[in-house]
Lab assay of single mutants.
Amino acid sequence: NQASVVANQLIPINTALTLVMMRSEVVTPVGIPAKDIPRLVSMQVNRAVPLGTTLMPDMVKGYA
């Protein structure tokens, strides 16, 4: 199973992502692939993302 990107903490709306905010985990449904973590750094979330939430492409500005 492919690992997805999961929030390692509460990420407030419009926050630029950093490595410490994200972890990889095998979850259902599948979200953004963990291999894309380096690409996500500095991108902003367009909503508040609670701890443990799988990041989906529509949550990150400029990803999709």
Rank of each mutant, 00 (worst) to 15 (best):
N1P: 15
N1H: 12
N1W: 15
Q2G: 12
Q2N: 05
Q2C: 04
A3F: 12
A3M: 15
S4W: 02
S4P: 01
S4D: 01
S4Q: 02
V5K: 01
V5C: 03
V6A: 03
V6T: 06
V6F: 02
A7I: 07
A7N: 01
A7K: 01
A7D: 00
N8H: 10
N8Y: 03
N8R: 12
N8K: 15
N8T: 13
Q9F: 13
Q9D: 09
L10D: 15
L10V: 13
I11R: 00
I11W: 02
I11C: 03
I11F: 02
P12M: 11
P12A: 14
P12C: 05
I13Q: 15
I13R: 10
I13A: 10
I13N: 12
I13H: 12
N14T: 05
N14Q: 13
N14Y: 08
N14H: 12
T15A: 09
T15P: 00
T15G: 07
T15R: 06
A16F: 15
L17F: 02
L17N: 00
L17Y: 00
T18V: 05
T18D: 07
T18P: 00
T18C: 04
L19S: 10
L19N: 14
V20A: 13
V20N: 08
V20G: 15
M21A: 05
M21D: 04
M22H: 01
M22Q: 00
M22S: 01
R23E: 05
S24E: 12
S24C: 03
S24M: 13
S24N: 11
S24L: 10
E25R: 06
E25Q: 15
E25Y: 05
E25W: 07
E25G: 09
E25T: 12
V26N: 14
V26T: 09
V26Y: 14
V26S: 12
V26W: 11
V26H: 12
V27A: 06
V27G: 03
V27N: 03
T28G: 08
T28Y: 14
T28V: 10
T28D: 13
T28I: 08
P29C: 04
P29W: 04
V30F: 10
V30P: 13
V30M: 10
V30S: 15
G31C: 03
G31A: 03
G31E: 00
I32G: 00
P33W: 06
P33C: 04
A34Q: 06
A34E: 12
A34L: 04
A34N: 09
K35E: 09
K35C: 04
K35S: 14
K35N: 14
D36H: 14
D36V: 08
D36Q: 10
D36Y: 07
D36I: 05
I37K: 05
I37C: 03
I37M: 10
P38R: 05
P38E: 14
P38V: 12
R39H: 09
R39F: 06
R39T: 15
L40N: 00
L40W: 02
L40G: 01
L40D: 00
L40Y: 03
V41E: 08
V41C: 03
V41P: 03
V41G: 02
V41H: 07
S42E: 12
S42H: 10
S42L: 13
S42P: 02
M43T: 05
M43Q: 07
M43W: 06
M43F: 09
M43H: 10
Q44A: 15
Q44G: 05
Q44D: 05
Q44T: 11
Q44I: 08
Q44N: 07
V45C: 04
V45F: 01
V45A: 06
N46H: 11
N46Y: 11
N46R: 09
N46P: 03
N46F: 10
N46C: 05
R47T: 14
R47W: 15
R47M: 15
A48H: 12
A48P: 14
A48R: 10
V49I: 15
V49N: 02
V49T: 05
V49F: 02
P50S: 12
P50V: 10
P50N: 15
L51R: 06
L51A: 15
L51I: 14
L51W: 14
L51T: 10
L51N: 14
L51K: 11
G52T: 03
G52R: 05
G52L: 05
G52C: 03
T53W: 09
T53L: 12
T53H: 15
T53Q: 14
T53S: 15
T53V: 14
T53M: 09
T54K: 04
T54A: 06
L55C: 02
L55T: 01
L55Y: 01
L55N: 00
L55A: 00
M56T: 11
M56N: 06
M56R: 10
M56F: 11
P57R: 06
P57H: 13
P57V: 08
P57I: 06
P57F: 08
P57A: 14
D58H: 12
D58V: 10
D58K: 08
M59R: 03
M59A: 10
M59V: 07
M59L: 05
V60G: 01
V60R: 00
V60A: 02
V60S: 01
K61I: 10
K61V: 15
K61N: 15
K61Q: 12
G62R: 05
G62N: 13
G62Q: 11
G62Y: 07
G62H: 08
G62E: 15
Y63G: 04
Y63D: 04
Y63R: 03
Y63E: 03
Y63M: 06
A64E: 14
A64D: 12
A64H: 12
A64Y: 08
A64S: 11
